[in-house]
Structure formats: structure tokens, C-alpha cells
Design a protein around this nucleic acid. Structure first.
Length: 285
DNA sequence: TACCAGGTAAAAA
DNA sequence: TTTTTACATGGT
């Protein structure tokens, strides 16, 4: 599989690993839990030695075209970084960042349904608390393949009971939001695949119309689920901190300051924020 | 022990 | 129409 250059696969893996607990989940190879025709599969991506190409295998074996399509989506194969570099390369801070992080692309989740459920899970509570709820949910409804948990699909959670989600630690409201959402995906009222090609604003208005989806969640989905290059969660605590540290006075910036400081990088404001976060994370690990 | 953490819907004012 | 309030868990 060929990925639009510039691309640095090992660097991208290091950034992904900085988000995991141990930091050792994807050393040299990338494992993707996914579903093909509802059946859980694990995709493994590794660099071919002595070549720019990446090699993908699946377990159990699947049609190569389907496997490649998932991997291309997850790794954002078609994203061109060069225009972003040309826009931001001369900036006093970003010049150095782009040198350090050349070839880094954001990764996207194989399942937008999983992303949506995680977004609802992470509302208001800490990431640590959300992680605990998510683990219990996956252990209860997901599938274990080759030692990797594959998140349940919409069909599975559409059939879940509010009470069962409550035993995973979800509040009454969140349990209802998740089941309602799963049912809308399951019966076709909401087409998650269609969101992939809709404009940012249309995705936002579609999601906010759903129960349990406010502005924060819709934006977070655009940023983390679709990795839209110009989207930034400007009121997000982590973004406000990192923007303040790199571009502001060192203290946590306000949402308005985040928008002002990132404005020069449109239409790559999201990429700019992603590079700031990645740089900070790699510096720590 | 409190209090906060990558919010939102629904009730109250 | 604008402003409170309840919600659940895990870390400090």
C-alpha cells in the first residue's frame, strides 16, 4: 500500500503510542481492530523492509481490497501534508515543529460508531474515568481477537438494555444516549459513512440535532473521528493548555485566544493543533 | 474529604 | 429567554 508523501510511519506510531497507557502497544507495527461484514478482524500494518510501501495482513484473512480500504481510511493515506507545511513552515514556532514532525499524519478510528460512543462516554468525566467505563463496555459487548478487543457494532448496542450499561458505570442519561444512537445507526436513520464526505458544518448540524450531542461532542467527533484538517476543539481543556504553552503566554489560553492564535493557519487549524499536541507528547515520552 | 475532570438535557427562574 | 442543577466515576 502506498501512502501520499511525505509520510513517516514509525513517527506516526510513536505519537499514537503516546496516547496509550503503556506506550508499547504498537511498536514497529500497527494493529487495527475492525469489523468486516460484522465479523471482528485484526489488521496488522508493517513497513516493508527496504521500501516505502506498507504491508497489511488480516486475521482471519479477508479480501485484500476491503482490508486496504480500512487501512487507508485509518492512516489518512490520501492526506497531502505539503500545503500545510508551505503555509506554516515559515512561522517561528511551527518551522521547528514541522522539522521535528515531518511526515506525521493524524490517524482515524476504523469505526465511526466506536468513536461516537467514546465521545459520549468522555463527556464531562475525566479521561481516566471514561477509560474505565469504556473497558467495561468492550469487555461486556465486544469481541476478543488475537488478544485485541474489537468494539461492538451498532447492532449489538442497539439491543443493549439501559440497565446493562448502567452496570458498566454509565449514568442513566448516557446509557440512553448511547442506545438511542446505536438504534439510529442500526435502522439507517443515521448514515455514519455518509458523514465522511459531508462538509464540516453539515456534520456538526447533523450530530447536534441528536439527543446527547452538544457542540463539544460534535466538534470532538470532527476532530478525532474524521480528523478534519481545519477543525479544532477550541474550548477543550487540553487544546487550550497546549496552545497557551506554545503560542501564547505559557498559561492556559481561553477559547477565544485559541481561535485567534490559530486563525493564521486556516484551512489547517486542526493540523496545527494536532502538531502542537503531538510535539508536546513526544517531548514527554 | 472534597473537588474537578476533554458536557448535556431538563428543570427552574 | 437565561440560569441552575443532576448526573456517575476515578484521580488528587
Amino acid at each position: 500500500m502506498l501512502i501520499q508523501k511525505p509520510y513517516d510511519f514509525p513517527l506516526t506510531l510513536r505519537v499514537i503510542n503516546s496516547y496509550s497507557k503503556t506506550g508499547r502497544e504498537n511498536v514497529g507495527v500497527l494493529q487495527i481492530g475492525a469489523r468486516i461484514g460484522g465479523k471482528p478482524v485484526i489488521l496488522t500494518v508493517r513497513a516493508k523492509t527496504g521500501s516505502d510501501e506498507l504491508e497489511i495482513t488480516s486475521s482471519p484473512a479477508q479480501a485484500p481490497a476491503e482490508v486496504e480500504a480500512i487501512a487507508r481510511w485509518v492512516m489518512f493515506a490520501d492526506l497531502a501534508l505539503q500545503p500545510f507545511y508551505e503555509l506554516a513552515g515559515g512561522h517561528p514556532v511551527f518551522g521547528g515543529l514541522i522539522k521535528d514532525l515531518a511526515g506525521l499524519k493524524p490517524m482515524r478510528p476504523a469505526s465511526l460508531f466506536e468513536m461516537a460512543v467514546v465521545v459520549i462516554t468522555e463527556q464531562q468525566i475525566s479521561l481516566a474515568a471514561a477509560g474505565a467505563l469504556r473497558s467495561r463496555l468492550v469487555a461486556r459487548y465486544g469481541d476478543l481477537v488475537e488478544g485485541v478487543w474489537v468494539f461492538p457494532d451498532a447492532h449489538k448496542l442497539a439491543g443493549a438494555a439501559v440497565e446493562d450499561l448502567r452496570t458498566c458505570g454509565y449514568s442513566q442519561c448516557k446509557a440512553e444516549y448511547i442506545i438511542e444512537f446505536a438504534r439510529q445507526v442500526e435502522d439507517g436513520r443515521l448514515d455514519l459513512e455518509a458523514l465522511k464526505i459531508l462538509p464540516d458544518e453539515t456534520v456538526r448540524s447533523t450530530l447536534v440535532a441528536l439527543r446527547g450531542w452538544g457542540p463539544w461532542s460534535a466538534n470532538y467527533f470532527l476532530v478525532r473521528g474524521l480528523a478534519r484538517p481545519d477543525c479544532v476543539p477550541s474550548d477543550d481543556l487540553a487544546i487550550r493548555s497546549v496552545v497557551g504553552r506554545y503560542l501564547g503566554d505559557g498559561t492556559r489560553a481561553s477559547a477565544a485566544q485559541v481561535e485567534q492564535l490559530l486563525a493564521p493557519f486556516a484551512p489547517y487549524r486542526g493540523m496545527a493543533a494536532f502538531y502542537l499536541e503531538a510535539h508536546e507528547r513526544l517531548a514527554k515520552y
